[in-house]
Computed example of a mutant assay.
Amino acid sequence: MDIEIRMKDNSTITDEELKDIEQLFNNEYTDEDDVWEKNAPYGFSPSDIRAMAYMNGKLIGHIGADKRWIAVGKSKVKVAGIGGVLVERDYRGFGIAKMLMHQLINNLQQKEYAHFGYLGCREEVVSFYNSCGFERIDRTETVKKNYSNEYMTRTGFPILICSITKDVSTFPTGNIYLHGTAW
């Protein structure tokens, strides 16, 4: 399988790449009320950096990261919020998402982009993220609700972190306040 990985800053995404990303997401998420947008994908946070997998000129996978300072207990922590993890159905099971994740994390480390990678996910995909170097933490998280200015607090939702410039063992204790929407 000959796959081309493109690392792109959001500011350098071409119109053609935007159309590819929109099509990939809209093929997966078919809710007529939700249409993918560059700066508000499904109401979640946008991506500053994107890892994209192409095969024969077709976008088949995507992962985004967004840099943000969050509050953890009494500490401020710079995270790369990971989101938009998606591989087209016909290409799943070939390690493409793992390849993209490793490329993204390496890029973030080289740029000293953030202290930690950070994501929330569904329970059924925790093992995938563990295999990519993420560790689960048990915390209460406060996050801005999508499409509103209201915040909600949630507990028990899978939250995972990985090392970028600091070891995960140094992640502060305490409740997490994302200062925005989830990724």
Rank of each mutant, 00 (worst) to 15 (best):
K78D: 01
I5H: 08
E4F: 14
F171C: 06
A80G: 11
F94L: 13
I176Y: 02
P172R: 14
T165N: 08
S11F: 11
I176K: 01
I82N: 05
I5K: 04
Q109E: 12
E37D: 06
N146P: 06
P41S: 02
A182S: 13
V79M: 05
S11T: 11
Y113F: 14
W69P: 03
F94Q: 14
G156N: 04
M55V: 03
V87I: 13
Y29H: 09
M52G: 06
S131C: 03
S75E: 15
R139A: 10
W69C: 02
C132G: 04
E16S: 12
G81M: 12
S127I: 13
N27P: 04
I60R: 05
Q109W: 03
I63M: 07
D90A: 12
I63D: 03
R68W: 00
A114C: 11
I13N: 06
F25S: 00
K78R: 11
D167C: 07
R89H: 01
D138L: 10
R92L: 15
Q109C: 05
I105R: 14
L178W: 02
K111Q: 10
R154H: 01
N107K: 15
A114P: 11
M99P: 00
E32I: 11
I13S: 08
G95P: 10
T12N: 14
R154A: 01
L108F: 14
V72T: 08
V143Y: 06
G73H: 09
E16H: 05
V143H: 00
T181D: 08
L119M: 13
G133V: 04
R6H: 11
T14L: 15
Y129E: 04
I3C: 09
Q110R: 09
A114Q: 06
K76L: 05
R92S: 14
I137D: 09
G73F: 04
R92A: 15
V143W: 00
A40K: 12
Q103H: 14
I159S: 00
G120L: 07
T173M: 13
H179S: 03
G84E: 08
I21G: 07
I176Q: 00
E28K: 13
R136S: 10
L119V: 09
P158K: 05
V126T: 14
N107R: 15
V168M: 06
E32C: 08
D138W: 07
I70R: 02
F94H: 14
T170S: 14
K111Y: 01
D33E: 11
T153L: 05
S169I: 10
D20A: 13
N26Y: 12
T155L: 01
Y42Q: 04
G64R: 01
C121T: 12
E32H: 12
I164R: 00
T165D: 11
K111A: 07
I70T: 03
L24I: 01
V85T: 06
Y129M: 00
G133K: 00
I137K: 10
E37W: 01
L108I: 15
P41N: 06
R154P: 00
I70Q: 02
D31T: 06
D2A: 11
E22F: 03
R122V: 09
